Simulated scan of single mutants.
Amino acid sequence: MNFSYWEIKSWLANLDFTIVGSGIVGLNCALYLKEIYPKANILILEKGLLPQGASTKNAGFACFGSLSEILDDLNTHTEIEVIELVKKRVEGLQLLRQTLGDSTINYQAFGGYELFTENDDLFENCLSEKDNINNLLKPIFNADVFSIKDNTFNFKNIKNQYIFNAYEGQIDTGKMMEALLQKVQSKGIKILNSITVESFSEDQGSVKVKTNQFDFSTSKLMIATNGFASQLNIPEVKPARAQVLITKPIKNLHIQGTFHLDQGYYYFRNIDNRILFGGGRNLDFKTEETTEFAQTKLIQNKLETLLKTTILPDTNFEIDHRWSGIMGVGKQKKAIVKQLSNKVFCGVRLVGMGVAIGSLIGKELAELTQN
Rank of each mutant, 00 (worst) to 15 (best):
Q263Y: 15
I234M: 01
K251W: 05
G264E: 09
G227I: 01
G227D: 01
R241A: 02
N270R: 11
I271E: 13
A229K: 01
P249R: 08
T247I: 04
Y267Q: 11
D262C: 02
L261I: 13
P235W: 12
N270I: 03
V244H: 10
I250Y: 12
F268E: 11
Q263H: 15
L253Q: 08
I246K: 10
I223H: 03
Q256S: 15
I271W: 06
L221W: 00
A224P: 01
A240Q: 14
K251T: 09
I223E: 05
N270W: 08
S219Y: 07
Q263N: 13
I234P: 03
L245C: 04
A224W: 00
H254K: 15
D272G: 02
L253F: 06
A242R: 11
K238W: 01
L232M: 09
L232P: 08
L221Y: 05
K251H: 15
D262N: 13
K220Y: 01
L245W: 00
Y265N: 06
Y267M: 12
P235T: 02
Y267D: 04
D272H: 09
L232F: 11
I255T: 11
Q263G: 04
K248L: 12
H260M: 15
D262V: 09
Y266I: 06
Y265E: 02
L232R: 04
R241K: 10
N270P: 10
N226I: 09
R241N: 05
A224F: 01
P249V: 08
H254F: 07
F259N: 07
D272V: 00
K220P: 00
Y267A: 14
I223R: 08
N270Y: 08
V237D: 02
K238H: 06
P249D: 12
N252K: 15
P239C: 06
E236A: 14
T258H: 05
V237F: 08
Y267L: 07
N226H: 11
I223C: 04
I234L: 09
I271S: 14
F268A: 08
L261T: 04
I246Q: 12
T225L: 01
I246E: 14
Y267H: 15
Q243Y: 05
A240H: 07
Y266M: 03
A242M: 09
I250L: 14
R241E: 05
Y265M: 01
N270E: 14
A240T: 07
Y265C: 03
R241L: 06
Y265D: 06
H260K: 13
V237L: 05
I223A: 07
I223V: 12
V237M: 04
S219P: 02
V244G: 01
F259H: 13
V237A: 01
N233L: 06
I250Q: 11
N252Q: 13
I234R: 03
Q256T: 13
I250A: 13
G257N: 10
K251V: 05
K248C: 14
I250C: 09
F268L: 10
P239H: 08
A229P: 01
D272N: 15
I223N: 06
E236R: 06
F268M: 06
L245E: 02
P249F: 07
K248D: 14
H260L: 14
Q231K: 13
R241M: 06
A240I: 07
F259P: 10
Y267W: 07
I246A: 13
T258F: 13
K220T: 00
Y266V: 03
F259K: 05
